[in-house]
Design a protein around this nucleic acid. Structure first.
Length: 375
DNA sequence: CCCCCCCC
């Protein structure tokens, strides 16, 4: 027993003495008596990320990289994702679940298997709990993940952890990013739409527009996440955990996606947002812009038939600022605004899409995602 | 995975 104690003392309390002893016994059994207790204890210690050199330091999450190998640390649960079942080659049913944990230096995704994945299913693992964790690092679907394998440790701790989620700023969001955490203000909320998936089932989708001090981005919420939009209001500040960024294939704008691996929740801290208006002379085709200026031209409202036979309305106005003048096509209900507008009225056109239009001149399209303020 | 920027 002394020899177990000696090894145990190097572990820095990452695991209880009882658990350690049990693991050592299991290890002896696994090795079919081919190793003694001391060796088994050292093997278990090694599995827990403790080297013979007595390196029993707990790591911080910020120091975990794809090459870290075995790691151990203490962290707080920030989000829990649904467990999934899969079939193993031997016919048994495996279970896997992911949770996101954080310490004061950053956050990392954990992968739990089988019995531990079941703890997710039963709700025993909850946001806010703190755990002692030992596992091995691998490069996962969306970056570095810590796997808690058979020899890993995952036990609750009463340590007080100051968890920090490293939020990105909206301006830094790039196509392809995963595990994206954002704190932002809600600028707009869409209705929930349903659609048919390729597999024949019905999907749900909704959008919100969010902004922070650095910019704004459209967020797409899928299925059960789409329902959450009914609980949100414009000007709420929210935190999105584990979103991902994808370019849409319509106008190549990068959007943030919120699916079943993500969470969105209201936060107390208010995130500030200020609209960034572009000078008219700086507008190039193929982008979304907001401009502020005066009405400098008004056209007539017209109805027209689209190819699919539906009727729509359009009117054209011109807006000028210190730098130039641009034509703006107002579609749908926006077309009716020509009745309220007069030359020299101050207007803000928020989120209109630019393109090269009639006579190759750049114009803005004010569609259903555009907001128009008369000031 | 959805919406879609369309007129003269």
């Amino acid at each position: 027993m002394d020899e177990i104690n000696e090894v145990y003392d190097k572990l820095g309390g990452i695991i209880s003495k009882d658990d350690f002893t049990r693991k050592v016994e299991e290890k002896v059994e696994q090795m079919s008596g081919l190793c003694d207790t001391k060796t088994a204890a050292m093997l278990v210690a090694h599995d827990l990320g403790v080297s013979d050199a007595g390196d029993n330091q707990l790591q911080k999450i910020s120091g975990i990289t794809a090459n870290s190998g075995n790691v151990k640390f203490i962290a707080k649960v920030m989000s829990v994702f649904p467990a999934k079942e899969f079939n193993r080659n031997d016919g048994t049913i495996g279970r896997v679940a992911n949770i996101m944990v954080a310490d004061e230096t950053g956050s990392v995704r954990l992968t739990l298997w089988d019995d531990r994945a079941d703890l997710v299913k039963t709700g025993e693992i909850e946001v806010g709990q703190t755990y002692q964790i030992a596992g091995y690092v691998k490069e996962g679907y969306s970056g570095v993940e810590v796997n808690i394998g058979n020899n890993g440790v995952f036990c609750q701790s009463d340590e007080n952890i100051e968890a920090r989620i490293d939020s990105k700023q909206i301006k830094d969001i790039q196509n392809g990013m995963g595990d994206l955490n954002i704190r932002a203000r809600i600028l707009d909320i869409s209705d929930i739409r349903t659609f048919n998936k390729k597999d024949g089932s019905t999907g749900k989708v909704a959008n919100i527009l969010i902004g922070d001090e650095t910019g704004k981005i459209r967020v797409t919420l899928w299925d059960e996440m789409a329902d959450l939009t009914t609980e949100l209001e414009i000007d709420n500040s929210v935190e999105i955990i584990n979103g991902y960024a994808r370019e849409n294939n319509f106008n190549q704008q990068v959007e943030m996606q919120v699916g079943n691996r993500s969470t969105i929740s209201k936060i107390e801290d208010e995130v500030e947002f200020k609209e960034d208006f572009t000078s008219i002379s700086d507008i190039i085709p193929g982008e979304s812009y907001s401009i502020s200026g005066q009405v400098s031209g008004l056209g007539e409202m017209r109805e027209f038939n689209r190819d699919d036979g539906t009727v729509n309305m359009v009117s054209n106005i011109y807006v000028s600022d210190d730098t130039g003048r641009i034509r703006i096509a107002l579609w749908g209900d926006h077309a009716l605004l020509v009745d309220q507008l007069d030359i020299d009225m101050a207007v803000e056109i928020i989120d209109a899409f630019s393109k090269s239009g009639f006579n190759d001149e750049i114009e803005l399209s004010a569609g259903n995602r555009t907001k128009i303020n008369i000031r």
